[in-house]
Design a protein around this nucleic acid. Structure first.
Lengths: 131, 131
DNA sequence: TTACCTGCAAAAGTTTTGCGCCTCA
DNA sequence: TGAGGCGCAAAACTTTTGCAGGTAA
């Protein structure tokens, strides 16, 4: 366990869910010399060790969070806000998938996409925002 | 409506859900001179017109499909198989989210991740496969 | 002409790889 | 000495942008 790795773990914990680049910025605020390569390598290692996990928020960038930090992500593809919801929200769906398709759902790995309560109701959701 | 655009539409329809690169390969099998830039630009245009939509299957690459081609995608992050399920599977969840959080779910935009019936039960899902 | 579409080339952004150096046991 | 971790540079890959030429109304 090197200082760099500890910093990456701390950053993941502090930021909740963040992209490798955000994590790198956070780490560099404490230790400016740390290279982004190290961040990528460390995240890869930590993930293999099961200490962190990554989630796809929809627009390209994977975000990393603690393994324990489990909830469903709701991403508004109008304003980009990421909300969190309890995982038991998915219980019914998970059960149905298991029974009907034999599919074992991993509720935390992907974010659900849609429009949050604060965003205006638009007939056509702008595809630009959902990248 | 140019020949290139028609080819892109055909490719999207034929492939079901495919990445820009796969679509480009398909188009080029009919017209080798077509540039991938054109594919990107055309997909962007078609999406703005509401003729195609894209879905995030989890591992970085967005996939494009016909607008009418609506279902929930189930991605196995062990073998990578993409399964399709009827959207009404999500009705209960969508209703609950709307009521409890005011969140308007877009059921087709993201894929659900997990392990399909054909893949062996592993305690730890290999993070490598879930990129 | 005017507007738009295309192909090519280059740029930009993100992630991975190679390599030499350093540290620590 | 040997293994592993780090930083730097470069490569690889995906997507976007700028530009010049071509086509059609």
């Amino acid at each position: 366990m090197t200082p760099q790795r500890q910093l990456v773990i701390d950053a993941v914990r502090d930021l909740g869910h963040a992209t490798p680049e955000q994590i790198c910025a956070q780490v560099q605020s404490a230790a400016p010399a740390v290279n982004i390569t190290t961040v990528y390598r460390t995240l890869d290692l930590l993930e293999r060790l099961g200490m962190v996990r990554h989630t796809h928020l929809g627009h390209g960038a994977p975000t990393y969070s603690e393994q324990e930090h489990q909830h469903v992500h709701l991403v508004c593809h109008n304003c980009g806000t990421v909300m969190e919801a309890p995982t038991d929200l998915m219980d019914g769906l998970a059960e149905r998938l298991r029974r009907e398709s034999g599919f074992e759902l991993d509720v935390t790995h992907v974010a659900l996409s849609g429009r949050c309560a604060d965003c205006p109701d638009e007939t056509q959701i702008d595809p630009e925002e959902t990248r």
